[in-house]
Computed example of a mutant assay.
Amino acid sequence: MSDTAVLDITVAKADFADPADAAAIVAMLDVYACDPMGGATPLSDDVRERLVPALAEVPGAFVLLARIDGEAVGIANCFTGFSTFAARPLVNIHDMAVAPAHRGKGVARALFAAIEAEARAIGACKVTLEVLSGNHRAKELYASLGYGDFQLDPEAGHALFWQKRLT
């Protein structure tokens, strides 16, 4: 296939009960986990076993899988939340990953189009995501799609994403 050929990228919601979709979710999340931007550590056997059944139990959780010729090449793990200021749902993209061999081919753009379509379908007021400050390639893509820092008042600054790990 030449660089100018149009790829047939399909994006669909994963069916947590479908063994092929479940395997693709685990495989794609492991690709992301092994990437430096995902922590560079493979998923543990315990997480591999519990991931899909646990996702299936989370209200508002949905996973979009991008495929080329039937092969999973991208994933977006999303969760529906709620904006108190808008009194409407929101969609948070918790994980976004494209297999290294398929980056730069429009896979992430296809995933974002599907996420935004899902968000509109449920009446969401916005789509949110987190990105590492050093992930310049992702930040360029997100900015080109209209995403940016969250702020209510420029004088108060932009939001920061903090965490506290619990053992």
Rank of each mutant, 00 (worst) to 15 (best):
S44N: 01
T84C: 06
D30C: 01
L111M: 10
M1R: 10
A143S: 13
L111Q: 05
A24E: 10
R88L: 15
A76M: 02
R109W: 07
F112C: 00
A138D: 10
D149A: 15
T80R: 15
M96P: 09
H158Y: 15
F62K: 04
V52M: 03
L160K: 11
N135F: 00
D15V: 03
A124L: 08
G134M: 02
P42V: 12
G134V: 06
A101C: 02
I25L: 07
S83P: 09
K164Q: 13
T80F: 03
M37Y: 08
S44P: 10
V52P: 11
T4S: 15
D18V: 06
M1E: 02
A117Y: 05
G39I: 08
L160F: 07
L55V: 01
A40D: 15
S133Q: 14
V26L: 03
A23D: 14
R88V: 05
A22C: 06
L90Y: 04
V107Q: 01
A99Q: 02
D95Q: 02
D69K: 06
P59H: 06
R48M: 14
L64F: 14
R48Q: 14
V73Q: 07
I115F: 03
G74W: 08
G134C: 04
L132Q: 14
R48P: 04
V98Y: 08
G39K: 13
L160C: 09
S2E: 05
A110I: 01
K126G: 12
T128C: 04
T167K: 09
D46K: 12
A108K: 02
I93T: 09
A86Y: 10
D30K: 05
N92H: 12
R50P: 00
L43G: 01
P53W: 11
V63Y: 00
L64R: 14
G123S: 09
A61C: 15
K164L: 15
M1Q: 10
A40L: 02
F62I: 07
N135R: 03
L29H: 14
A22E: 13
A20K: 12
P19F: 11
I9G: 11
K13P: 08
Q151Y: 15
A23G: 11
D45F: 07
F161W: 10
A108H: 00
G39Y: 04
A113G: 12
F62A: 00
V131P: 13
